[in-house]
């Protein structure tokens, strides 16, 4: 009995150690940073305007990310451009999450005009179903996203409705495979 008890104690202690390591990793994953006043002012403006339609992902120093829905995307971008003055499109990224059956389209928008926001980058993400990833184009707000959206279209198969010229950009014209940046497109030999 005593030996068993000793074993169980050992196991317990081991499991405790494992737990503590996990806890450490978790702590590193989510360091609780209080939102700084500058970021908080931007977040407040958006939450008062859009309420529950948008969800805050994070508000780290100089980096803010929101999740929004396809219906609001043009209104949201218009509000961001006209009211908060984030006016410079930086990039459009598509990310494939086959486990969640989702394709995420992330717009990164910078600011050139308001001095206190110039160091910040605002990101908003659309989580689209992987079977029919459709969204609306933002060319009417940020004309520079035209080529970024074309790239996302060919690389991940996201369709931007209302885009004037949604054609292949970087891939060859006779490309006859699935969009290459989806996770189920494998590289030969890897």
């Amino acid at each position: 009995m005593s030996s068993k008890a000793a074993q169980s104690e050992q196991e317990k202690s081991q499991s405790k150690e494992v737990e503590t390591e996990e806890q450490k990793i978790q702590k590193r994953e989510e360091p609780k940073i209080e939102i700084l006043p500058l970021e908080k002012s931007i977040v407040d403006k958006i939450t008062t305007k859009f309420g529950d339609k948008v969800t805050l992902v994070y508000a780290k120093p100089k980096r803010i990310k929101f999740n929004i829905t396809t219906e609001d995307v043009v209104d949201f971008a218009r509000f961001l451009h006209d009211e908060i003055k984030f006016d410079q499109p930086i990039s459009v990224t598509g990310i494939d999450y086959p486990k969640d059956n989702i394709i995420e389209v992330v717009y990164h928008i910078g600011c050139c005009t308001v001095p206190e926001y110039r160091s910040s980058v605002f990101a908003f993400a659309l989580r689209l179903p992987r079977d029919s990833p459709n969204t609306l184009t933002l060319i009417s707000v940020y004309s520079g996203v035209e080529y970024h959206e074309r790239e996302t279209f060919e690389m991940l198969g996201v369709i931007f409705k209302g885009h004037p010229n949604l054609q292949r950009l970087l891939l060859p014209e006779d490309w006859a495979d699935i969009p290459p940046l989806r996770k189920d497109f494998g590289i030969k030999g890897r």
Partner: peptide
């Protein structure tokens, strides 16, 4: 220049004082 998203010398040649080394 801002709306098209151009950067660097092209942006600064149009009078926008935006340099990542200074702003961030």
């Amino acid at each position: 220049a801002i709306n098209l998203g151009v950067t660097g010398p092209v942006l600064r040649a149009s009078g926008v004082e935006h340099d990542i080394r200074k702003v961030e």
